[in-house]
């Protein structure tokens, strides 16, 4: 099958979704959702836009996504053999792994002694960034759109002009003794 056909794209996409969902797990998008394991309530990295972010060439990983998916599935097959797991062949091997085994495999791939560690850390980094900072969207727009990560973290929305300002910011009273060796300019002596 030539690269880029829908079937291969979807294999790639659900494999990467399953990876992102291992980093920041979310609830299933629909009952038949195989990529998202449903290990946590609320949206996770996938719902936050991980695939959109990973596919953006600004990240520098977009051109390697085929390799990521292929390698991840190879690792998943080897892991399943080792663990004596029989995987559902109707989905890619990593997607077929139960959530706790996806987690164990990602922990192994990102461990300090793994030869491919930097490669997998990058994928984890962008998966996390999709959730904690919506790096594929303007932040104010992401908050207005109810971005699941920013909402779950409780990040406050900007003011009407799109800028953040916090007029109340201080308890406004002394809260500790100063170090006795402080200079008049406020530095350590």
């Amino acid at each position: 099958m030539p690269p880029g056909t829908p079937a291969e794209d979807s294999i790639r996409t659900i494999t990467l979704e399953a990876f992102a969902d291992t980093i920041i797990p979310g609830e299933k998008r629909h009952p038949g959702d195989r990529a998202v394991a449903g290990a946590a309530a609320g949206g996770g990295a996938v719902q936050a836009g991980a695939i959109e972010l990973l596919q953006w060439n600004a990240t520098g990983v977009s051109e390697g996504l085929d390799d990521y998916a292929r390698l991840l599935n190879e690792h998943a097959s080897a892991y399943a053999d080792e663990a004596g797991l029989v995987l559902d062949a109707s989905v890619p091997p990593f997607v077929a792994l139960p959530f706790e085994h996806r987690t164990a495999l990602v922990a192994r791939l990102t461990a300090p002694d793994h030869p491919e560690k930097p490669f997998w850390i990058l994928l984890a980094l962008f998966s996390n960034m999709a959730y904690d900072s919506a790096a594929h969207m303007h932040t104010a727009e992401a908050i207005a759109a109810g971005h699941p990560g920013l909402r779950a973290m409780g990040i406050a929305a900007p003011g009407a002009d799109g800028l953040w300002r916090f007029p109340a910011f201080s308890y406004g009273r002394p809260l500790a003794r100063l170090h006795p060796d402080t200079t008049p300019s406020g530095s350590p002596a």
Binding site: I23, I24, P25, T103, A124, A152, M153, G154
Partner: peptide
């Protein structure tokens, strides 16, 4: 990363 990390993030403020 994972489920407990997500819980920790929910207390980010």
């Amino acid at each position: 990363f994972g489920v407990r990390k997500k819980e920790m993030l929910s207390r980010w403020q």
